[in-house]
Design a protein around this nucleic acid. Structure first.
Lengths: 181, 181
DNA sequence: GCGAACTTTCACTAAATACTGAAAATACGA
DNA sequence: TCGTATTTTCAGTATTTAGTGAAAGTTCGC
């Protein structure tokens, strides 16, 4: 390695590696706090900061995880649309690369969370409301009022998010910056 | 119980109880998907749909959970500000009631998540950026660019959320509804 | 300052979740 | 069609997280 030959470069490489590790570890912890598998978040972090696409083996090596674990979480990331697999001509190995555009990442995550969690939650609420629709007791009315309020709010939030992710970054970001002033 | 005396009321009570249970269970599952302890979310759900304040013992009974569990999660909810404890004059028992206004609930959750997860994440990113600031390699530049983009985005999101939760529901909701058109 | 009502803590256990590694399946070139 | 490179699966295990319940602590009326 050229880098090891030069003490300054070697020190810099160590410094960069440390920062990268820190980022991967912390991103894993953050994902975890939001209900995302720690390893999945770490792989995502690793792919975000790696310019080139990586193989399963490289991911295993970098994060010191098993093949099964790397495989499952890479598939999960592909399922989210946050990572795509690329095949290099003449090679049988599969390479993985992350979507690096932050706005696109955000849109993907919002869309998926809407689909996986917000929509189902709205359906549950609607179902609860329907179940007590014909009841007349004060308790039933109170229950219906509360669930209805929640449902309306979530539908509104869902709608706003849909509109936001449908718009172009180029129109939203300037708006947001202006909004902040 | 009066309700058991009248078959129609009894049937209605069962129907309502089923809907309430469904709501509590599902809200627990939803909370879970977003990184919140299932029981905490269930207690929150129970308090949201219960008009009166409940004691620890009532929560234990309703959800069939231990005193320790009920206690810990009630405290956690109070810590978030989603539930407040109320004392009735002449009684030593502590009663708990949830904030029922959906907009206020939303603001509390956003504020807490910002404080507990978004801000720390931004600090981590800034730290990573700083660590590689003086490095000159292409890899370091690439890492810096990517983390900077993430950081900028999160700061913008943080700012927008701050502004949203600082505003009045009466000004945001009509705006959102108009935005949806 | 005693004792009952109530709250808090925490060592232990249970349950849920994540990870491993090796075997099976698949894909592909020769 | 065979052999090998690669991917996929999954039973078993490890780790993490949540929950229990009883004991200790607190508060307050008397």
């Amino acid at each position: 390695m050229e880098k090891q030959a030069n003490p300054a470069n070697s020190a810099e490489a160590v410094q960069l590696a440390a920062a990268r590790d820190e980022f991967v570890t912390q991103w894993g912890a953050i994902g975890n706090a939001w209900g995302i598998n720690r390893t999945m978040a770490q792989i995502h972090a690793l792919l975000i900061i790696t310019p080139s696409a990586l193989t399963t083996d490289e991911v295993m090596e970098e994060l010191k995880i098993s093949r099964g674990n790397a495989h499952t979480n890479l598939r999960e990331l592909v399922g989210w649309g946050l990572v795509r697999s690329v095949v290099r001509k003449g090679e049988r190995k599969e390479y993985f690369e992350a979507e690096k555009d932050v706005w696109k990442m955000f849109c993907i995550i919002v869309r998926e969370r809407k689909r996986r969690e917000i929509r189902p939650a709205i359906h549950v609420l609607k179902d609860c409301i329907e179940r007590v629709d014909d009841l007349k007791s004060a308790e039933a009315k109170s229950f219906a009022t509360q669930t209805k309020a929640l449902c309306d709010f979530m539908e509104m939030a869902d709608g706003v998010l849909s509109k936001v992710v449908r718009s172009e970054q180029s129109s939203i970001v300037p708006w947001a910056l202006k909004f902040l002033k």
